[in-house]
Nucleic acid binder design. Structure first.
Lengths: 202, 202
DNA sequence: TGTACATCAGTGAACGCGCGTTCACTGATGTAC
DNA sequence: TGTACATCAGTGAACGCGCGTTCACTGATGTAC
Protein backbone atom coordinates (compact mmCIF):
# COMPACT_ATOMS: atom_id res chain seq x y z
CA UNK A 1 0.00 0.00 0.00
CA UNK A 2 2.78 2.42 0.90
CA UNK A 3 4.26 3.91 -2.18
CA UNK A 4 7.74 5.31 -2.41
CA UNK A 5 7.59 6.81 -5.85
CA UNK A 6 5.22 9.09 -7.65
CA UNK A 7 3.97 6.25 -9.78
CA UNK A 8 2.18 3.39 -8.19
CA UNK A 9 3.40 0.70 -10.50
CA UNK A 10 0.39 -1.57 -10.32
CA UNK A 11 -2.53 0.62 -9.47
CA UNK A 12 -5.04 -1.23 -11.62
CA UNK A 13 -4.63 -4.46 -9.71
CA UNK A 14 -4.30 -2.65 -6.40
CA UNK A 15 -7.73 -1.11 -7.00
CA UNK A 16 -9.20 -4.51 -7.72
CA UNK A 17 -7.83 -5.82 -4.45
CA UNK A 18 -8.98 -2.77 -2.52
CA UNK A 19 -12.47 -3.28 -3.93
CA UNK A 20 -12.54 -6.89 -2.81
CA UNK A 21 -11.47 -5.93 0.66
CA UNK A 22 -13.99 -3.10 0.94
CA UNK A 23 -16.82 -5.35 -0.19
CA UNK A 24 -15.78 -8.03 2.28
CA UNK A 25 -15.60 -5.57 5.13
CA UNK A 26 -18.65 -3.42 4.51
CA UNK A 27 -20.97 -5.26 2.16
CA UNK A 28 -21.77 -4.58 -1.45
CA UNK A 29 -22.88 -1.03 -0.66
CA UNK A 30 -19.74 -0.29 1.27
CA UNK A 31 -17.69 0.25 -1.80
CA UNK A 32 -16.99 3.58 -3.40
CA UNK A 33 -14.39 4.52 -5.94
CA UNK A 34 -13.10 7.18 -3.58
CA UNK A 35 -12.53 4.74 -0.78
CA UNK A 36 -10.90 2.19 -3.04
CA UNK A 37 -8.48 4.90 -4.15
CA UNK A 38 -7.79 5.81 -0.54
CA UNK A 39 -7.10 2.20 0.33
CA UNK A 40 -4.69 1.95 -2.56
CA UNK A 41 -2.92 5.04 -1.26
CA UNK A 42 -3.77 7.19 -4.22
CA UNK A 43 -5.81 10.31 -4.93
CA UNK A 44 -9.50 10.06 -5.80
CA UNK A 45 -8.80 11.03 -9.37
CA UNK A 46 -6.22 8.34 -10.04
CA UNK A 47 -8.63 5.45 -10.71
CA UNK A 48 -9.88 7.26 -13.80
CA UNK A 49 -6.56 6.52 -15.48
CA UNK A 50 -7.51 2.83 -15.39
CA UNK A 51 -11.28 2.57 -15.26
CA UNK A 52 -14.07 4.58 -16.83
CA UNK A 53 -15.84 4.60 -13.50
CA UNK A 54 -17.16 2.69 -10.59
CA UNK A 55 -19.03 0.08 -12.63
CA UNK A 56 -16.08 -0.78 -14.83
CA UNK A 57 -13.97 -1.49 -11.76
CA UNK A 58 -16.68 -3.68 -10.25
CA UNK A 59 -17.01 -5.58 -13.50
CA UNK A 60 -13.28 -6.23 -13.59
CA UNK A 61 -13.45 -7.57 -10.06
CA UNK A 62 -16.31 -9.86 -11.09
CA UNK A 63 -14.42 -11.00 -14.19
CA UNK A 64 -11.34 -11.96 -12.21
CA UNK A 65 -13.65 -13.65 -9.74
CA UNK A 66 -15.22 -15.78 -12.43
CA UNK A 67 -11.81 -16.77 -13.75
CA UNK A 68 -10.63 -17.95 -10.36
CA UNK A 69 -14.00 -19.57 -9.77
CA UNK A 70 -13.69 -21.55 -12.99
CA UNK A 71 -10.10 -22.50 -12.12
CA UNK A 72 -11.14 -23.81 -8.73
CA UNK A 73 -14.05 -25.79 -10.12
CA UNK A 74 -11.78 -27.26 -12.73
CA UNK A 75 -9.17 -28.22 -10.16
CA UNK A 76 -11.84 -29.75 -7.93
CA UNK A 77 -13.28 -31.76 -10.80
CA UNK A 78 -9.82 -33.02 -11.75
CA UNK A 79 -11.13 -34.56 -14.96
CA UNK A 80 -13.51 -36.80 -13.09
CA UNK A 81 -10.93 -38.65 -11.02
CA UNK A 82 -11.23 -41.05 -9.38
CA UNK A 83 -14.91 -41.39 -10.27
CA UNK A 84 -17.24 -38.87 -11.89
CA UNK A 85 -19.64 -38.85 -8.94
CA UNK A 86 -16.93 -38.12 -6.38
CA UNK A 87 -15.46 -35.45 -8.62
CA UNK A 88 -18.84 -33.86 -9.20
CA UNK A 89 -19.59 -33.63 -5.50
CA UNK A 90 -16.13 -32.19 -4.94
CA UNK A 91 -17.08 -29.34 -7.27
CA UNK A 92 -19.98 -28.52 -4.99
CA UNK A 93 -17.68 -28.21 -2.03
CA UNK A 94 -15.32 -26.08 -4.12
CA UNK A 95 -18.27 -23.84 -4.90
CA UNK A 96 -18.92 -23.24 -1.20
CA UNK A 97 -15.24 -22.85 -0.45
CA UNK A 98 -14.96 -20.16 -3.10
CA UNK A 99 -17.97 -18.29 -1.76
CA UNK A 100 -16.54 -18.39 1.75
CA UNK A 101 -12.86 -17.78 1.07
CA UNK A 102 -13.34 -15.24 -1.71
CA UNK A 103 -16.41 -13.52 -0.41
CA UNK A 104 -15.57 -10.16 -1.90
CA UNK A 105 -15.32 -11.67 -5.35
CA UNK A 106 -18.47 -13.70 -4.87
CA UNK A 107 -20.45 -10.64 -3.90
CA UNK A 108 -19.10 -8.66 -6.83
CA UNK A 109 -20.06 -11.52 -9.15
CA UNK A 110 -23.55 -12.23 -7.88
CA UNK A 111 -24.79 -9.49 -5.61
CA UNK A 112 -23.38 -6.22 -6.81
CA UNK A 113 -26.01 -5.49 -9.41
CA UNK A 114 -23.62 -5.37 -12.36
CA UNK A 115 -24.85 -6.64 -15.70
CA UNK A 116 -22.97 -9.70 -16.84
CA UNK A 117 -24.48 -9.63 -20.29
CA UNK A 118 -23.29 -6.08 -20.87
CA UNK A 119 -19.59 -6.88 -20.71
CA UNK A 120 -18.30 -9.49 -23.08
CA UNK A 121 -15.12 -10.38 -21.18
CA UNK A 122 -17.22 -10.83 -18.09
CA UNK A 123 -19.77 -12.93 -19.91
CA UNK A 124 -17.05 -15.15 -21.37
CA UNK A 125 -15.58 -15.74 -17.94
CA UNK A 126 -18.95 -16.61 -16.48
CA UNK A 127 -19.66 -18.99 -19.34
CA UNK A 128 -16.33 -20.66 -18.83
CA UNK A 129 -17.29 -21.37 -15.22
CA UNK A 130 -20.64 -22.80 -16.27
CA UNK A 131 -18.84 -24.92 -18.85
CA UNK A 132 -16.91 -26.68 -16.12
CA UNK A 133 -20.14 -27.59 -14.36
CA UNK A 134 -21.67 -28.80 -17.61
CA UNK A 135 -18.73 -31.07 -18.37
CA UNK A 136 -18.97 -32.40 -14.85
CA UNK A 137 -22.62 -33.23 -15.41
CA UNK A 138 -21.81 -34.94 -18.70
CA UNK A 139 -19.21 -37.12 -17.06
CA UNK A 140 -21.84 -38.58 -14.75
CA UNK A 141 -23.30 -40.43 -17.72
CA UNK A 142 -20.17 -41.69 -19.46
CA UNK A 143 -20.70 -45.31 -18.47
CA UNK A 144 -24.47 -45.22 -18.93
CA UNK A 145 -26.21 -46.10 -22.13
CA UNK A 146 -29.62 -44.80 -23.07
CA UNK A 147 -31.25 -41.42 -22.98
CA UNK A 148 -29.82 -38.83 -20.63
CA UNK A 149 -31.13 -35.56 -19.32
CA UNK A 150 -29.42 -32.49 -20.78
CA UNK A 151 -26.16 -31.77 -18.96
CA UNK A 152 -26.80 -28.01 -19.11
CA UNK A 153 -29.97 -28.46 -17.13
CA UNK A 154 -28.20 -30.50 -14.47
CA UNK A 155 -25.45 -27.90 -14.25
CA UNK A 156 -28.03 -25.16 -13.80
CA UNK A 157 -29.90 -27.09 -11.12
CA UNK A 158 -26.75 -27.68 -9.14
CA UNK A 159 -25.60 -24.11 -9.64
CA UNK A 160 -28.93 -22.81 -8.41
CA UNK A 161 -28.93 -25.09 -5.39
CA UNK A 162 -25.38 -24.11 -4.49
CA UNK A 163 -26.10 -20.43 -4.91
CA UNK A 164 -29.24 -20.68 -2.82
CA UNK A 165 -27.38 -22.45 -0.05
CA UNK A 166 -24.73 -19.73 -0.04
CA UNK A 167 -27.21 -16.89 -0.03
CA UNK A 168 -29.67 -18.27 2.48
CA UNK A 169 -27.48 -20.31 4.78
CA UNK A 170 -23.91 -19.53 3.92
CA UNK A 171 -23.32 -16.36 5.88
CA UNK A 172 -21.85 -17.03 9.25
CA UNK A 173 -24.78 -15.77 11.24
CA UNK A 174 -24.70 -17.29 14.68
CA UNK A 175 -28.09 -18.77 15.43
CA UNK A 176 -29.05 -18.48 11.80
CA UNK A 177 -32.08 -19.91 10.12
CA UNK A 178 -30.72 -23.40 10.14
CA UNK A 179 -28.12 -24.98 12.37
CA UNK A 180 -26.91 -27.25 9.59
CA UNK A 181 -23.61 -26.29 8.05
CA UNK A 182 -23.81 -25.12 4.45
CA UNK A 183 -21.50 -27.88 3.28
CA UNK A 184 -23.75 -30.56 4.73
CA UNK A 185 -26.83 -28.89 3.30
CA UNK A 186 -25.42 -28.77 -0.18
CA UNK A 187 -24.10 -32.30 -0.04
CA UNK A 188 -27.33 -33.82 1.24
CA UNK A 189 -29.32 -31.90 -1.35
CA UNK A 190 -27.01 -32.86 -4.19
CA UNK A 191 -27.04 -36.52 -3.16
CA UNK A 192 -30.83 -36.64 -3.12
CA UNK A 193 -30.90 -34.90 -6.48
CA UNK A 194 -28.37 -37.29 -8.02
CA UNK A 195 -30.30 -40.24 -6.70
CA UNK A 196 -33.32 -38.79 -8.47
CA UNK A 197 -31.27 -38.80 -11.65
CA UNK A 198 -30.48 -42.47 -11.19
CA UNK A 199 -26.78 -41.76 -10.75
CA UNK A 200 -26.80 -43.20 -7.27
CA UNK A 201 -28.61 -46.47 -6.63
CA UNK A 202 -31.18 -46.40 -3.82
CA UNK B 1 -50.04 10.31 -3.75
CA UNK B 2 -51.62 13.75 -4.05
CA UNK B 3 -52.56 15.04 -0.68
CA UNK B 4 -55.24 17.62 -0.02
CA UNK B 5 -54.69 18.22 3.64
CA UNK B 6 -51.73 19.01 5.78
CA UNK B 7 -51.74 15.52 7.20
CA UNK B 8 -51.12 12.59 4.99
CA UNK B 9 -53.36 10.14 6.73
CA UNK B 10 -51.44 7.01 5.95
CA UNK B 11 -47.86 8.02 5.46
CA UNK B 12 -46.34 4.97 7.08
CA UNK B 13 -47.87 2.63 4.54
CA UNK B 14 -47.34 5.09 1.69
CA UNK B 15 -43.61 5.03 2.47
CA UNK B 16 -43.59 1.26 2.38
CA UNK B 17 -45.21 1.30 -1.03
CA UNK B 18 -42.89 4.01 -2.30
CA UNK B 19 -39.92 1.93 -1.19
CA UNK B 20 -41.19 -1.10 -3.05
CA UNK B 21 -41.65 0.90 -6.20
CA UNK B 22 -38.23 2.54 -5.97
CA UNK B 23 -36.53 -0.79 -5.47
CA UNK B 24 -38.40 -2.29 -8.39
CA UNK B 25 -37.50 0.60 -10.66
CA UNK B 26 -33.90 1.23 -9.71
CA UNK B 27 -32.55 -1.78 -7.91
CA UNK B 28 -31.71 -2.26 -4.26
CA UNK B 29 -29.32 0.68 -4.31
CA UNK B 30 -31.85 2.95 -5.92
CA UNK B 31 -33.68 3.56 -2.72
CA UNK B 32 -33.11 6.49 -0.42
CA UNK B 33 -35.28 7.77 2.37
CA UNK B 34 -35.34 11.17 0.70
CA UNK B 35 -36.68 9.78 -2.55
CA UNK B 36 -39.26 7.64 -0.82
CA UNK B 37 -40.51 10.76 0.94
CA UNK B 38 -40.63 12.61 -2.38
CA UNK B 39 -42.60 9.80 -3.97
CA UNK B 40 -45.07 9.88 -1.10
CA UNK B 41 -45.46 13.61 -1.63
CA UNK B 42 -44.00 14.59 1.67
CA UNK B 43 -40.95 16.46 2.94
CA UNK B 44 -37.69 14.66 3.58
CA UNK B 45 -38.12 15.03 7.32
CA UNK B 46 -41.56 13.45 7.50
CA UNK B 47 -40.46 9.80 7.45
CA UNK B 48 -38.75 10.30 10.80
CA UNK B 49 -42.18 10.53 12.42
CA UNK B 50 -42.69 6.88 11.50
CA UNK B 51 -39.29 5.23 11.18
CA UNK B 52 -36.04 5.65 13.02
CA UNK B 53 -34.24 5.69 9.70
CA UNK B 54 -33.62 4.09 6.40
CA UNK B 55 -32.97 0.61 7.75
CA UNK B 56 -36.12 0.47 9.84
CA UNK B 57 -38.22 1.29 6.78
CA UNK B 58 -36.47 -1.38 4.73
CA UNK B 59 -37.05 -3.91 7.48
CA UNK B 60 -40.73 -3.09 7.59
CA UNK B 61 -40.93 -3.62 3.84
CA UNK B 62 -39.21 -6.97 4.25
CA UNK B 63 -41.52 -7.94 7.10
CA UNK B 64 -44.64 -7.20 5.10
CA UNK B 65 -43.05 -9.08 2.23
CA UNK B 66 -42.53 -12.18 4.35
CA UNK B 67 -46.12 -12.03 5.55
CA UNK B 68 -47.50 -11.93 2.05
CA UNK B 69 -44.99 -14.55 0.99
CA UNK B 70 -46.18 -16.89 3.73
CA UNK B 71 -49.81 -16.18 2.81
CA UNK B 72 -49.20 -17.05 -0.80
CA UNK B 73 -47.31 -20.24 0.01
CA UNK B 74 -50.10 -21.24 2.35
CA UNK B 75 -52.76 -20.56 -0.27
CA UNK B 76 -50.79 -22.49 -2.88
CA UNK B 77 -50.33 -25.46 -0.57
CA UNK B 78 -54.05 -25.47 0.24
CA UNK B 79 -53.58 -28.02 3.00
CA UNK B 80 -52.16 -30.54 0.59
CA UNK B 81 -55.15 -30.79 -1.72
CA UNK B 82 -55.73 -32.71 -3.84
CA UNK B 83 -52.51 -34.60 -3.20
CA UNK B 84 -49.46 -33.59 -1.18
CA UNK B 85 -47.11 -33.86 -4.14
CA UNK B 86 -49.23 -31.63 -6.36
CA UNK B 87 -49.65 -29.13 -3.57
CA UNK B 88 -45.94 -29.12 -2.79
CA UNK B 89 -45.00 -28.41 -6.38
CA UNK B 90 -47.62 -25.67 -6.49
CA UNK B 91 -45.77 -23.97 -3.64
CA UNK B 92 -42.67 -23.88 -5.81
CA UNK B 93 -44.55 -22.08 -8.54
CA UNK B 94 -46.00 -19.70 -5.96
CA UNK B 95 -42.45 -18.98 -4.85
CA UNK B 96 -41.46 -17.92 -8.35
CA UNK B 97 -44.68 -15.99 -8.85
CA UNK B 98 -44.05 -14.03 -5.69
CA UNK B 99 -40.49 -13.21 -6.72
CA UNK B 100 -41.69 -12.01 -10.11
CA UNK B 101 -44.88 -10.20 -9.17
CA UNK B 102 -43.59 -8.68 -5.93
CA UNK B 103 -40.03 -8.04 -6.97
CA UNK B 104 -39.61 -5.01 -4.75
CA UNK B 105 -40.56 -7.00 -1.70
CA UNK B 106 -38.41 -9.94 -2.74
CA UNK B 107 -35.36 -7.72 -3.12
CA UNK B 108 -35.98 -6.05 0.23
CA UNK B 109 -36.28 -9.48 1.83
CA UNK B 110 -33.28 -11.18 0.29
CA UNK B 111 -31.00 -8.70 -1.40
CA UNK B 112 -31.10 -5.48 0.55
CA UNK B 113 -28.52 -6.39 3.13
CA UNK B 114 -30.80 -5.98 6.14
CA UNK B 115 -30.29 -8.31 9.06
CA UNK B 116 -33.25 -10.59 9.61
CA UNK B 117 -31.99 -11.84 12.94
CA UNK B 118 -31.75 -8.32 14.30
CA UNK B 119 -35.47 -7.59 14.12
CA UNK B 120 -37.76 -9.95 15.92
CA UNK B 121 -40.96 -9.12 14.04
CA UNK B 122 -39.05 -9.68 10.83
CA UNK B 123 -37.58 -12.92 12.06
CA UNK B 124 -40.98 -14.20 13.12
CA UNK B 125 -42.44 -13.43 9.70
CA UNK B 126 -39.58 -15.20 7.96
CA UNK B 127 -39.95 -18.21 10.21
CA UNK B 128 -43.64 -18.34 9.50
CA UNK B 129 -42.87 -18.58 5.79
CA UNK B 130 -40.38 -21.36 6.37
CA UNK B 131 -42.97 -23.14 8.51
CA UNK B 132 -45.29 -23.41 5.55
CA UNK B 133 -42.58 -25.09 3.51
CA UNK B 134 -41.78 -27.44 6.37
CA UNK B 135 -45.40 -28.53 6.74
CA UNK B 136 -45.53 -29.05 3.00
CA UNK B 137 -42.50 -31.31 3.23
CA UNK B 138 -44.03 -33.25 6.12
CA UNK B 139 -47.20 -33.87 4.16
CA UNK B 140 -45.23 -35.69 1.49
CA UNK B 141 -44.72 -38.53 3.92
CA UNK B 142 -48.17 -38.87 5.49
CA UNK B 143 -49.01 -42.11 3.75
CA UNK B 144 -45.52 -43.56 4.05
CA UNK B 145 -44.39 -45.69 6.92
CA UNK B 146 -40.80 -46.05 7.99
CA UNK B 147 -37.98 -43.58 8.54
CA UNK B 148 -38.21 -40.21 6.85
CA UNK B 149 -35.70 -37.50 6.20
CA UNK B 150 -36.16 -34.39 8.34
CA UNK B 151 -38.81 -32.11 6.87
CA UNK B 152 -36.79 -29.01 7.79
CA UNK B 153 -33.95 -30.20 5.63
CA UNK B 154 -36.24 -30.80 2.68
CA UNK B 155 -37.79 -27.36 3.11
CA UNK B 156 -34.34 -25.79 3.15
CA UNK B 157 -33.23 -27.67 0.05
CA UNK B 158 -36.29 -26.57 -1.86
CA UNK B 159 -36.01 -23.03 -0.58
CA UNK B 160 -32.37 -22.87 -1.64
CA UNK B 161 -33.12 -24.30 -5.08
CA UNK B 162 -35.97 -21.85 -5.60
CA UNK B 163 -33.93 -18.91 -4.44
CA UNK B 164 -31.04 -19.90 -6.66
CA UNK B 165 -33.31 -20.17 -9.66
CA UNK B 166 -34.73 -16.72 -8.98
CA UNK B 167 -31.35 -15.12 -8.50
CA UNK B 168 -29.50 -16.76 -11.34
CA UNK B 169 -32.19 -17.27 -13.95
CA UNK B 170 -35.24 -15.38 -12.80
CA UNK B 171 -34.48 -11.91 -14.03
CA UNK B 172 -35.92 -11.24 -17.41
CA UNK B 173 -32.63 -10.85 -19.19
CA UNK B 174 -33.14 -11.43 -22.87
CA UNK B 175 -30.55 -13.92 -24.04
CA UNK B 176 -29.74 -14.76 -20.46
CA UNK B 177 -27.55 -17.56 -19.23
CA UNK B 178 -30.16 -20.17 -19.94
CA UNK B 179 -33.05 -20.14 -22.38
CA UNK B 180 -35.16 -22.30 -20.09
CA UNK B 181 -37.92 -20.48 -18.25
CA UNK B 182 -37.43 -20.26 -14.49
CA UNK B 183 -40.67 -22.11 -13.82
CA UNK B 184 -39.54 -25.08 -15.91
CA UNK B 185 -36.15 -25.06 -14.28
CA UNK B 186 -37.53 -25.14 -10.81
CA UNK B 187 -40.11 -27.78 -11.63
CA UNK B 188 -37.65 -30.11 -13.34
CA UNK B 189 -35.19 -29.68 -10.49
CA UNK B 190 -37.81 -30.28 -7.83
CA UNK B 191 -39.13 -33.36 -9.60
CA UNK B 192 -35.68 -34.92 -9.82
CA UNK B 193 -35.09 -34.10 -6.17
CA UNK B 194 -38.40 -35.61 -5.08
CA UNK B 195 -37.71 -38.72 -7.07
CA UNK B 196 -34.44 -38.94 -5.17
CA UNK B 197 -36.47 -38.84 -1.98
CA UNK B 198 -38.58 -41.73 -3.17
CA UNK B 199 -41.71 -39.59 -3.30
CA UNK B 200 -42.10 -40.16 -7.01
CA UNK B 201 -41.62 -43.66 -8.39
CA UNK B 202 -39.09 -44.00 -11.21
C1' DT C 1 -72.87 22.38 20.87
C1' DG C 2 -68.87 25.23 21.65
C1' DT C 3 -64.42 26.20 23.26
C1' DA C 4 -59.67 25.50 25.21
C1' DC C 5 -55.99 22.98 24.91
C1' DA C 6 -52.82 18.93 24.32
C1' DT C 7 -51.07 16.11 21.02
C1' DC C 8 -49.95 14.59 16.66
C1' DA C 9 -47.96 14.72 12.04
C1' DG C 10 -46.47 17.49 9.06
C1' DT C 11 -42.96 21.67 7.09
C1' DG C 12 -38.85 23.91 5.43
C1' DA C 13 -34.46 25.46 6.19
C1' DA C 14 -30.11 24.20 7.50
C1' DC C 15 -25.97 21.33 8.55
C1' DG C 16 -22.11 18.51 7.49
C1' DC C 17 -20.68 14.89 4.68
C1' DG C 18 -18.70 12.12 1.11
C1' DC C 19 -19.18 10.96 -3.47
C1' DG C 20 -18.23 11.05 -8.56
C1' DT C 21 -16.08 13.51 -11.83
C1' DT C 22 -13.31 17.08 -14.28
C1' DC C 23 -9.36 19.90 -14.95
C1' DA C 24 -4.94 21.92 -15.49
C1' DC C 25 -0.92 20.51 -13.61
C1' DT C 26 3.56 17.83 -12.81
C1' DG C 27 6.78 14.18 -11.60
C1' DA C 28 8.61 9.85 -13.55
C1' DT C 29 9.67 6.89 -17.24
C1' DG C 30 10.99 5.32 -21.70
C1' DT C 31 12.98 6.04 -26.16
C1' DA C 32 15.22 8.10 -30.38
C1' DC C 33 19.28 9.72 -31.76
C1' DT D 1 26.67 7.41 -22.62
C1' DG D 2 24.02 11.65 -22.65
C1' DT D 3 20.34 14.48 -23.82
C1' DA D 4 15.76 16.02 -25.64
C1' DC D 5 11.39 15.05 -25.67
C1' DA D 6 6.94 12.49 -25.78
C1' DT D 7 4.11 9.93 -23.06
C1' DC D 8 2.33 8.08 -19.06
C1' DA D 9 0.37 8.02 -14.47
C1' DG D 10 -0.06 10.45 -10.90
C1' DT D 11 -1.80 15.13 -7.93
C1' DG D 12 -4.81 18.36 -5.65
C1' DA D 13 -8.25 21.57 -5.88
C1' DA D 14 -12.69 22.37 -7.22
C1' DC D 15 -17.57 21.58 -8.68
C1' DG D 16 -22.25 20.28 -8.06
C1' DC D 17 -25.06 16.96 -6.02
C1' DG D 18 -28.09 14.46 -3.04
C1' DC D 19 -28.29 12.26 1.16
C1' DG D 20 -29.34 11.62 6.18
C1' DT D 21 -30.55 13.97 9.97
C1' DT D 22 -31.87 17.71 13.23
C1' DC D 23 -34.46 21.59 14.64
C1' DA D 24 -37.83 24.98 15.80
C1' DC D 25 -41.98 25.67 13.80
C1' DT D 26 -47.10 25.13 12.66
C1' DG D 27 -51.40 23.32 10.82
C1' DA D 28 -54.81 19.70 11.89
C1' DT D 29 -57.07 16.67 14.90
C1' DG D 30 -59.08 14.83 19.00
C1' DT D 31 -60.85 15.34 23.59
C1' DA D 32 -62.35 17.20 28.20
C1' DC D 33 -65.56 19.89 30.05
Amino acid sequence: MARSSYHHGNLRQALVEATVKLIEDSGPQGFTLAEAARLAGVSAAAPYRHFAGRDELLEEVARQGFEEFADRLEAAFDDGRPRPLTAFLRMGQAYLAFAAERRGFYIAMFESGISIAGNSALQQASERARGVLVRGAESLFVARPGPRPPAGMIADHIWALSHGVVELFGRGKPGARSPIAPADMLESGALIYLRGLGIIPD
